[in-house]
Simulated assay, not measured.
Amino acid sequence: MKHLLFIPLLVASLLAAIPALAMEGVAVIDMRNAVLATQVAQDAFKALEEEADYAANIERATVLQTERQSLAETLQKDAETLSQEEIADMQRDIQEKGKDIEFIVGKIQAKQSETADKIFRDLNPSLQKILSELIAAKEVKMLLGRENVLFADTSLDLTDDVTSMLDVAAAEGKDNE
């Protein structure tokens, strides 16, 4: 009878020990977040928001969305009193505004993606150097992308460390200019 209790306890203690052993030398990082949270990235996106074309696209998308919402509300409220032709015209206008919004949002997203890609290219040498230093300093044997991990203890996450170190490296780079 003692053996029947001993085996489940042994298995439970081994299972409890495995995660502790497995976590040593393992780290997690969200490289996208690490880079896009830097001051360099924030400055780049702020500059993007101040570009005339980009700001005009944001404004145009906002106006179109407001017009579309207003048309939809009018159509819903007055549907009983409108003719079939008026309803069809309003529905067509709503669809056209929706297509225009999709097109403009696509342009906005493309510009954001282009800006993010440029930030990644610019910061990549510093990022690689910092990752190498952190891997050596923290004796990381396995580095996982956060997007591929279902759960990780926050103490394993290097994202904030990398962001801070990238900010320091960028500040030092400005000081040396």
Rank of each mutant, 00 (worst) to 15 (best):
E80S: 06
E49S: 12
L64M: 05
E85L: 05
K129W: 08
T115A: 01
L158A: 08
I108S: 03
A61I: 08
L64K: 01
R146L: 03
D93F: 10
V149K: 03
L158N: 12
N176A: 15
V35F: 03
A116R: 13
E139T: 06
G173R: 12
S132I: 08
K77V: 08
D160T: 14
S113H: 07
A44S: 07
E73Y: 01
V26K: 02
Q76L: 04
E86I: 14
I119A: 02
A110R: 05
L71P: 10
R68P: 00
H3R: 15
K46A: 07
T66P: 11
Y54S: 06
A20T: 15
N148M: 12
M31T: 15
T81E: 08
V11I: 14
R60H: 15
K141D: 14
E172S: 12
M165C: 04
D93S: 13
L158D: 10
L131S: 02
T62N: 06
E133N: 01
F6M: 09
N57A: 09
M90S: 09
K129R: 08
N57Q: 06
L134F: 13
L166T: 03
S155W: 02
Q112V: 02
M142H: 06
E133I: 11
P19R: 01
A137L: 14
K77L: 07
E67H: 04
D43L: 05
E50A: 14
D175T: 13
A34F: 05
L75V: 09
V105Q: 00
E133Y: 06
V40Q: 10
R121T: 15
M165N: 11
I94K: 06
D30S: 09
S13R: 01
R121A: 12
F151Q: 08
E96K: 14
F103Q: 10
D167F: 01
A169R: 07
